[in-house]
């Protein structure tokens, strides 16, 4: 009986050493050493290190951070607790909000049209590799440049106003949607395309009978998301490039009239509009998807 127990024990031990790795301290290792775990650790360390280097290298210009933070909190209290209009009328703000909404809508419509044709050239399963790579790199470059810089560049060429804003916002939207749409197209089942090809369907027949129907819900979801982004971008463009709309009012209230209360009122209007858009697009997505 005793011998058997010892034998079992020794089997157990040899099995253990086979399947259980122990650390140097003799504790049982609970996580496997893999390439991905090492890469993860390395990434976290690199990010923390860069953060530390950043904080040490920044030029703070001897700002009194505590005092500035204290007055910021006080300002924030005025901004959010006592919103009041004194330089604009409610009707004016409502009009400006519609202008911003329109800028967002126009650039989304143009972006979606351009994005659709770009995606047809970019998606690997329905385009040839050379064309796909050219479109891909072109679009990556456009996306890498901030929207506001596109608007400012176009302002010089097209003049100040809604044309530069819409075209500039469209640049970025189209590039974003080419990527999003082409990824949706690449995910569709190749069987539908092959079946249509075998039956002798033309290119556009394949696009409208197979590609569009099977990826339309994803495309719509991306378009709505982009509309939300374009709305926020239109606010920023109005503020920084003088393109009009509620962003411009926001900028004027803060940097020209120095009125925190005015800024607060407009902020609440903007936040309410953004939340309403988010809710609307969630509802539409749920219905379509």
């Amino acid at each position: 009986m005793g011998e058997l127990a010892i034998a079992l024990h020794s089997i157990d031990l040899s099995e253990q050493s086979k399947y259980m790795k122990k650390t140097r301290k003799g504790k049982i290792r609970t996580a496997a050493k893999t390439k991905s775990a090492a890469a993860l650790k390395l990434t976290v360390i690199a990010l923390l290190l860069l953060t530390a280097i950043g904080f040490l290298s920044f030029d703070y210009k001897k700002v009194n951070a505590a005092q500035a933070a204290f007055s910021t909190v006080q300002n924030a209290r005025v901004l959010f607790a006592q919103p009041r209009l004194s330089y604009n009328t409610v009707a004016g703000i409502a009009r400006a909000l519609f202008v911003t909404f329109s800028l967002g809508a126009l650039s989304t419509i143009f972006g979606a049209i351009l994005g659709f044709f770009g995606a047809l050239m970019c998606a690997r399963n329905i385009s040839n590799p050379t064309l796909s790579n050219i479109v891909r790199s072109f679009v990556a470059f456009i996306r890498a440049v901030p929207t506001i810089l596109w608007v400012l560049i176009l302002t010089v060429a097209a003049g100040l106003g809604s044309v530069a804003a819409v075209v500039g916002l469209t640049f970025h939207s189209a590039a974003y949607l080419v990527k999003a749409y082409s990824e949706s197209i690449e995910e569709i089942d190749s069987a539908a395309i092959e079946a249509l090809k075998a039956s002798g369907a033309s290119y556009w027949q394949i696009i409208f009978q197979a590609v569009v129907p099977s990826s339309i819900s994803y495309m719509l979801a991306w378009t709505f998301l982009r509309f939300e982004i374009n709305f926020t971008n239109a606010i920023a463009v109005g503020a920084a490039a003088g393109a009009g709309g509620i962003g411009y009012d926001l900028f004027m209230a803060g940097s020209f009239y120095f009125s925190l209360r005015e800024l607060g009122f407009i902020t609440y209007v903007v936040a309410a509009a953004v939340i309403a858009l988010e809710a609307l697009s969630t509802k539409v997505k749920a219905k379509v998807g």
């Binding site: 933070a69 910021t72 901004l79 920023a236 503020a239 962003g247 926001l250 803060g254 120095f258 800024l263």
Partner: peptide, 11 residues
């Protein structure tokens, strides 16, 4: 941009 304008007042 609202955060940026608000912080500009103090910082």
């Amino acid at each position: 941009i609202v955060w940026a304008i608000l912080l500009m007042f103090s910082f």
